[in-house]
Write a protein that binds this DNA or RNA. Structure first.
Lengths: 113, 113
DNA sequence: CATGTTGCTACAGATAATGTAGCGTGATGC
DNA sequence: GCATCACGCTACATTATCTGTAGCAACATG
């Protein structure tokens, strides 16, 4: 076994070459709009255009790029007639993000410098 | 009160204008290297150069930009002679990230498609 | 068949990151 | 004193990435 494989594909995220899953995730989520997309899908499926609107009208170019990456990562799927939805794995990601959501509340109260 | 204020400054993060703290956090963490920096500081302070090395030799330009943003956000501080360190608030952020770290482990085992 | 919405793409212009070099400052060695 | 050396940080040209607008093909509705 030369490599742990797993997160190594053609469009692999940066940092995946280290073999440390957290690096791959860190990189995937560090791209613009990625976290936001997952967050906006928390309440159910959205069409690509509704998603774009929800994401402060991000450009369709990068939106499609992120959606492709998220689909390839198994976190998001495209339904035949409801738009995009979190996969069970994507839902796990969203739930793992909740502590950060709660942190943001505390954080916003201490920024007032 | 026209705005909840808090996270609105000159270099305010994108999304902060919504007044929703999670959007400001989502935007801050969505910038390249930001999450990675917080992650690399989890075990103690690092000098700016050690931090750059730890972060896959990111360019000093963007590194300093991120460090400035993180300092302004109250998540990171510069010690007189030990380099950069997470503030207590930054440590909270890092700990809030841990579920995502654990998720990454599960995730990496299901990517193998 | 005209209209509307879907997912998705092209392309030019703007923005952000990279890579290399180097500055000023302070500590250390001789 | 004076040459290193590492520190935080910056300049700047090149490259990568994102934006904004327009529009495509496919499908549905009236």
């Amino acid at each position: 076994m030369p490599k742990p494989a797993a997160v190594t594909k053609k469009n692999a995220v940066r940092g995946s070459r280290t073999g440390r899953p957290v690096m791959a995730l860190l990189d995937l989520l560090g791209r613009r709009w990625t976290l936001r997309i997952v967050w906006e899908l928390r309440d159910g499926p959205l069409t690509s255009r509704a998603l774009r609107t929800a994401c402060d009208d991000a450009s369709p170019t990068v939106m499609q790029a992120r959606l492709s990456e998220l689909r390839e990562a198994g976190l998001v799927e495209l339904l035949p007639s409801d738009g995009y939805r979190l996969t069970p794995l994507g839902r796990e990601l969203m739930e793992s993000f909740l502590p950060l959501h709660h942190f943001a509340e505390r954080w916003s109260k201490r920024i007032a410098s």
